[in-house]
Amino acid sequence: MPQLEQVSTFPSQVIWLLITFAVLYLLLWRVVLPKISATLENRSQRIANDFSRAEEIAAEAEGVLAAYEEELAKARSSAQDELHKAAEVANAEGETRNTALTEKLSGNAEAANTRIEDARKAAIGNISDVAEDLARQAVERLVDTTPDASTVNSAVSSAIGERY
């Protein structure tokens, strides 16, 4: 078995073991392991940071949502108030306009009635003039005398008075 027979190679094997092992140890200890450790540290820190930031943002979003909802509720109630106020104003306005219109209309109707009355009276006056004229001419043709104006007038006005 060479492992036990080649005793003369033992110092060489041990010294090269020490040299190579020491080189590997120094490399891993000084270069590789600190780097890997730093990388792992950074990563876990980054993950923790990201988590806490995500939590912060979630809380912030919740706050924003609450504020939004509050704002919305406020806006809704104020809109309701506005609406109520506007309706009241409109009602009042409608009322006043209604009364004004009613007054105006009734005034108009009265004026129209007066005008109709006047027109009727004027018309009746005209009719009596025409009727007097007609009566006088008819009398002239029938009996060939000019009747007295006051007689015709009283006869026509009594006849019209009977009718109207």
């Binding site: 090269w16 190579t20 270069v31």
Partner: peptide
């Protein structure tokens, strides 16, 4: 004392180069 660089030493060196190199690149 015989401290020759032998085939054993060679493979120890290769082991250091392979392991050290791989891990250095990995890190």
């Amino acid at each position: 004392i015989d401290l020759s660089f032998t085939n054993s030493s060679l493979w120890m060196t290769i082991a250091v180069i392979v392991a050290g190199g791989t891990l250095t690149v990995a890190a």
